[in-house]
Design a protein around this nucleic acid. Structure first.
Lengths: 112, 112
DNA sequence: GCATTCCGTAAGTCTAGACTTACCGTTCGT
DNA sequence: ACGAACGGTAAGTCTAGACTTACGGAATGC
C-alpha cells in the first residue's frame, strides 16, 4: 500500500491528525473517532505498512505515533512534484507566446 | 471531494504526473494511461472539482493543466502538518522524561 | 487462579467508486 | 450539409475496502 493511497482515506487522515505531536493508544484513538476500535486497528495497520506511523507496546496497550521519516518522505515527494510542475508552466507560457510546437513534442518524449 | 481524497486514487495521481509541467488534451492523456478515455474524463472532473487541474477549450479539444494554486495548497497543508507533528514530538520527549500528563491533557483540548 | 482490560484478527456486510460501453452535443474541415 | 474528431455524461458492472460484531490471546490487578 502506497503512502499516497493510505492518506487517500479520510478516517486515516483523521487518525494522523490525532497523532500529530503526540502518542495515543488504539482505544484512545477510537474514543476520538466516529468508528469502532477494530476499524481503527485496521487503519493503523495500513498506516504502519505505509511507514506513516510506528508503535510501541506498554503492557496490553499499543501506543502509536507518527513516523516523522515517513511523513517527511511525503513532503519531499510533493515538494519535488511541485517544483517540477511549476518549472514546466513557465516553459509552456513561453511556448504559447512563441506559437511553436517543437518544445512540446520534445517534452512528450522526455516523459516516456 | 477533498483534494486529499482526490489524490488518493492511483489513476488520478498518474494523470497529475502526466500534466506536470505541460498541458494535455483528454485524448492525449488517455493514450498515455491504461484506462478508457471516458474514465479519464471522469477523473479529470474530480480533479477539477478539487481545484487541482484547470482546463481551456480549443475547438473540440479540452486542454488540461495542473492548477498551481491547488497543488500549492496541498504542499502548504502538508508543510503545516509536518512542522506541527515534529514540534509535538519534541514536547512528548520532554513530557516522557518529566513523567507528567498535564501537557498531554492540554493538547487534547487544543485538538478539539 | 480468575476477572478485567486491551487489541489484533477473522468473518461477514454493503456500497462507493473505478471501470466499461453507448450515446449525443459541439466543433471543424471538406 | 455531411462526416469525422473530440469529449462530457448516462447507465451498467463489479469489487476493493471501510465498516461492523465476534473471538481469543496477552497483560495486569486482586
Amino acid at each position: 500500500m502506497d503512502a499516497w493511497d493510505a492518506i487517500g482515506d479520510p478516517t486515516r487522515r483523521a487518525i494522523m491528525a490525532c497523532l500529530a505531536g503526540k502518542e495515543l493508544a488504539v482505544g484512545e484513538l477510537a474514543d476520538e473517532l466516529p468508528v469502532s476500535r477494530p476499524a481503527v486497528s485496521q487503519h493503523l495497520k495500513v498506516l504502519k505498512n505505509a511507514d506513516l506511523v510506528a508503535e510501541r507496546t506498554v503492557g496490553t496497550r499499543r501506543i502509536y505515533r507518527l513516523n516523522p521519516a515517513g511523513v517527511a518522505a511525503l513532503r519531499d515527494q510533493l515538494e519535488t512534484f511541485w517544483s517540477r510542475a511549476l518549472t514546466g508552466y513557465q516553459d509552456v507560457a513561453e511556448d504559447r507566446a512563441g506559437q511553436t510546437t517543437n518544445s512540446r513534442a520534445d517534452r512528450l518524449e522526455e516523459e516516456e
